[in-house]
Amino acid sequence: MASSKAQAGQTLWAKMPKANAELFALTYGSLVTELVRDYEDPIEVNAQLERIGHSIGVRCVDELLSKADSSNLGSAVTQCGNLRDTAEVVSKVGFRMFLGIQAEVGGYSQDQRSFSIYLQENPLSTFVELPTIGDEQSSSSPSGGLDDLRKLKYSNLYCGVIRGALEMVNLKVECTIVRDTLKGDELNEIRVELKEVLSDGAGDDYKEE
């Protein structure tokens, strides 16, 4: 089953229009820089990146579902029975399809309500170096201590994308970046925690009587 998902991801990746990886990394880099300049507070920047990611995620999910459907990969992407399936689809199909990278899942918690996604490579962080504490004198930051930037989660966009995409399939999750190669860890790890499974239901329009 896991291999069929990886295969599906590969097929979908082949169908996606491609963008130049360097252009992509640089565009994202300038976006983050702009946010850092505008908000100054890295915590706020993290929140904004998450929010941007969320908007991306809610669109991505339709893209993924429809592409998977029309290329007869329906068997790989159907209603997931449990979080394990969901994790597989997110990492094997999602990351593969949109970024062309290999993502691994693991670290399931005892109650099966949280898991980790491991990224060996991170296309967002090509060319990126976060300033270290020693660099405080450098002039690139308009204000605020540069050591603050250590709190910046550069790739926090992923968290938002995952949250947005899963929200559309009725899973409310919380994501955090636990390990980051930019901070000296050997790989990137995104922890995804299931908060609740939303139930279907009619919206406010139906509640008048």
Partner: peptide
């Protein structure tokens, strides 16, 4: 209906820059 979803809805609506779910 599948076609309407994947080729028309996603193409025209979801991909529209103005789309707010």
């Amino acid at each position: 209906l599948k076609y309407i979803y994947s080729e028309i809805w996603v193409e025209c609506v979801v991909r529209s820059p103005l789309y707010r779910p």
